[in-house]
Design a protein around this nucleic acid. Structure first.
Lengths: 191, 191
DNA sequence: CGATTCTTTGAAAACAGTCAATCTGTGTGG
DNA sequence: CCACACAGATTGACTGTTTTCAAAGAATCG
């Protein structure tokens, strides 16, 4: 739990009193590998901050193919924003790819924190802006790059994730098949 | 300018006094077809609300190929968020595809409005959340759909834009070539 | 070690891209 | 008002990339 407080303190000034407020509304939850945090169809009413481990957000299509929308390692947030905001059944699954520990804050508590701690509100707003920009860059990559360029771009942006994830998950994240990724890697290594 | 005030009033309560505050920091700018609002390399320091017409945000790659990131018709916002937030040179061009009129609010004025008018701040935050979700759905389409499915998805989400834009721009938006889109349409019409 | 998951490889097929030519519709200037 | 230019759309033939399916190898985990 303290690593969450540390995270907040790295990003804005937080009094001990406010830190206590954050602690009072937070609870932690351990997830074993493959355990769901959100399952398709659930309505998601929390904010989840990853204390330890690695979560993945993905959908499964008719053919059983998994499509990864997001990976959330330590110090990232996880959940289904669409379900959270609109209070509709989740279209995505979120589960633990590694044994993990998350910190949960309910939606009403989160709204209270935003109102009571302006610096936190400001920080989260800024985080959302930056996430939006990152997502836009991902679209740019999707619509204009070849398989090899998409993979290189992934390595550039998430060098650390590349070591923690199996290739087939990276492939599904960038929108190509595992076989194509294998061939792309072979091709890169020959240079 | 009043259509901007109307837009705000459709989304939250706005006193006449606050409306006057919005008017005082807004100026309008007419753009002729093909005229730039932001050119690649500029730093973009405004918020632009489209009063009339249609703007497009796109990049141009080494081969001269255009990749459309966003279309902004009436009642949408335009600009390069990455340049605006980080104050870096824009990677995208924004220009008028139809003769247009935009309303401009400078970054400092925008920050003042966010601080002075909490309901506006709340509305813009919510708009950003919803834009984020829409963008995430676009990524989902990018990584999991075939050309035909991507096109059908575009028609479903932006039925009105489909009539205002040439096909080759729609193709570049969903990440396929104009020729492929033509064949997809032919194929759809045969059913 | 045995089972499972992940990666690689090959061959064939499907899909989308490229290039070039033609067709269509629109608008402009003579 | 017509001729022409221009941008956009379509079509064909071809190329290249990526997917699919299947099988074999490698790595990992309980």
């Amino acid at each position: 739990m303290e690593s969450f407080i540390d995270y907040l303190r790295r990003h804005f000034e937080l009094s001990e009193q406010d830190a206590e407020l954050f602690r009072s509304v937070s609870r932690t939850k351990k997830l074993r590998r493959k355990q769901y945090l959100v399952q398709e169809g659930d309505v998601w009413r929390y904010n989840a901050f990853v204390l330890k481990g690695l979560l993945r957000t993905y959908s499964v299509d008719d053919k059983g193919q998994e499509h990864y929308i997001q990976f959330s390692p330590e110090d990232w947030w996880a959940g289904d924003r669409e379900s959270y905001i609109y209070e509709t059944p989740a279209k995505y699954n979120v589960d633990a790819y590694e044994d993990s520990e998350v910190l949960l804050i309910s939606k009403p508590d989160m709204e209270m924190l935003h109102a009571e701690v302006p610096a936190f509100n400001h920080f989260m707003r800024n985080l959302l802006e930056r996430s939006f920009i990152a997502l836009r860059n991902r679209v740019q990559s999707n619509i204009s790059f070849t398989a090899e360029e998409k993979y290189r771009d992934f390595l550039r942006i998430y060098p650390d994730l590349a070591n923690r994830l199996p290739q087939h998950m990276i492939a599904a994240y960038i929108g190509i098949t595992a076989e194509t990724l294998s061939r792309v890697r072979h091709h890169i290594s020959k240079k």
